[in-house]
């Protein structure tokens, strides 16, 4: 039997295969925008985690005489808020809650939504109908409205906003998971795996997950920014985080009255939300292209 390799193949030396994820990592590193955004997001997360060790002012310490000081005021590099609290400290401490309520619902929704979508897409038939029509019901409501409705029904508080945001994000993730699974399900390699005697669970683990988790993961990453904004919105409306906890949405709300007095300071929490969600979106874009094996 002769080899049918092209000449180009013959010239190529024996290649040790890198794993799939190391390939993704390698391609991701080649994307400067995505890497920059990852660094920013990581810095934000690290700053939030290690906030107590950064030598910041007490974010809760108010001062009646130092209210709404501008950026660069001595001792307060980013100025002070309407109660004279240090903006820099509050922004960094605020990242803790904001990132937490931005990420946790998406992670939970990723787990539940992917599971539902995978089951619906792989099993098909009436199972698909039941799951997807239920999901459709949730699509009837705009996500903001749904989050507000569930949150206010459950009552204010962090846990309740986490629950409501998780419920809001399960349907879109389930929808993406279902369509990705259904398209993979119809491909011949799934039939070939079934013909090799693979059970449904094995086939899903070996042949389906690897091909659908990527798109779902990328989609979920892009949802974190939406989730942060929704969470901030809930706090802004007073059904999320309660004052005096620092949280970007809540800070935006309380500082909104100072917009004519000290617009730059008032805009800072919004800027943080903007930067974080922009970075998360660009990060997920980079991830999407890095996950494409063909490049």
């Amino acid at each position: 039997m002769t080899l049918t390799a092209d000449q180009a193949d013959l010239a190529e030396p024996v290649r040790k295969a890198p794993g799939y994820w190391s390939g993704v990592f390698r391609r991701f590193l080649k994307d400067p925008v995505a890497v920059t955004c990852t660094v920013i997001v990581l810095l934000l997360i690290l700053a939030a985690i290690f906030a107590p060790y950064l030598g910041l002012n007490d974010p809760y310490k108010a001062s009646m005489i130092k209210r709404l000081k501008p950026i660069g005021y001595p001792g307060f590099p980013l100025g002070t808020d309407e109660q004279g609290r240090d903006m820099l400290a509050r922004l960094i401490y605020g990242g803790r809650l904001t990132l937490f309520v931005g990420l946790v619902p998406v992670v939970l929704a990723f787990v539940f939504g992917s599971t539902l979508g995978l089951i619906a897409g792989y099993v098909g038939g009436w199972v698909n109908t039941v799951i997807m029509r239920t999901v459709d019901i949730f699509f009837a409501f705009p996500s903001v409205l749904l989050a507000i409705a569930i949150s206010s029904a459950l009552g204010a508080g962090i846990v309740n906003s986490l629950v409501s945001l998780t419920i809001v994000f399960i349907p879109p993730i389930a929808r993406v998971a279902e369509s990705a699974t259904a398209s993979v399900r119809s491909l011949d390699y799934i039939d070939a795996a079934r013909a090799s005697g693979g059970g449904a669970l094995t086939i899903v683990r070996v042949h389906v997950l690897g091909n659908v988790l990527g798109p779902i993961f990328v989609y979920a990453t892009s949802l974190t920014s939406v989730c942060m904004i929704l969470a901030a919105g809930l706090s802004f409306l007073g059904i999320g985080v309660r004052p005096p906890e620092p949280e970007w949405g809540l800070m935006l709300n309380t500082l909104r009255t100072a917009i004519y007095v000290n617009p730059w300071v008032a805009a800072l929490p919004g800027l943080m939300i903007f930067i974080t969600s922009l970075c998360l979106n660009l990060l997920s874009d980079g991830l999407r292209s890095a996950m494409n094996v063909k490049d």
């Binding site: 799939y20 013909a195 005697g197």
Partner: peptide
């Protein structure tokens, strides 16, 4: 299925790209 196997027409779709 241990005794019968199949080769499909679409050589690309019948291999898991991952």
């Amino acid at each position: 299925r241990r005794g019968v196997q199949m080769v499909f027409q679409d050589s690309y779709a019948s291999l898991n790209p991952r």
